[in-house]
Amino acid sequence: MVRRMTPSMRGDATAMCELLGRRLADQGAPHPIAGAVALAARGHLGLDREDFAGLVGIEVSDLSEAEAGMVPFGRLPRELDWILEDIDGLDLLGLAAAARDARCGTVAVACQHEQPCSDA
């Protein structure tokens, strides 16, 4: 079970994901926050794409697509879950909510460049 974090508990990992998401958004990624989370998983283990994909058992192409922000939050490879849960201070629920808010056009806490609901 993912532990829900209060703002006072949020660590740096969440803010770093938000930065990565902004950079992906600036590159036009349709799902920048999801892409940031995928990058965080690989960054946490410090592996290049080929080694990481082989370790978790996914195709390199699927990993690349996820990290480029082309895959929605809810469709990120499940194989990343155990890694993400291991990252201290990563508020996945908060990031997922931010991704949802951005898609629905409400006030986003970080990225405002996700596709609107009408494109879903």
């Binding site: 740096d12 990992a13 770093m16 994901c17 990565l20 950079r23 990058l39 965080a40 690989r42 960054g43 946490h44 410090g46 290049d48 990290e67 990252i87």
Partner: peptide
């Protein structure tokens, strides 16, 4: 080792290593 790994990865423009760099050296 971690520092060299991070810097090589970031030099290649791989943002996953930016996350790693922050985790290790913040």
């Amino acid at each position: 080792d971690d520092l060299c790994t991070c810097m090589q990865g970031m030099a290649a423009g791989d943002a996953a290593f930016l996350f790693m760099f922050h985790e290790r050296f913040a």
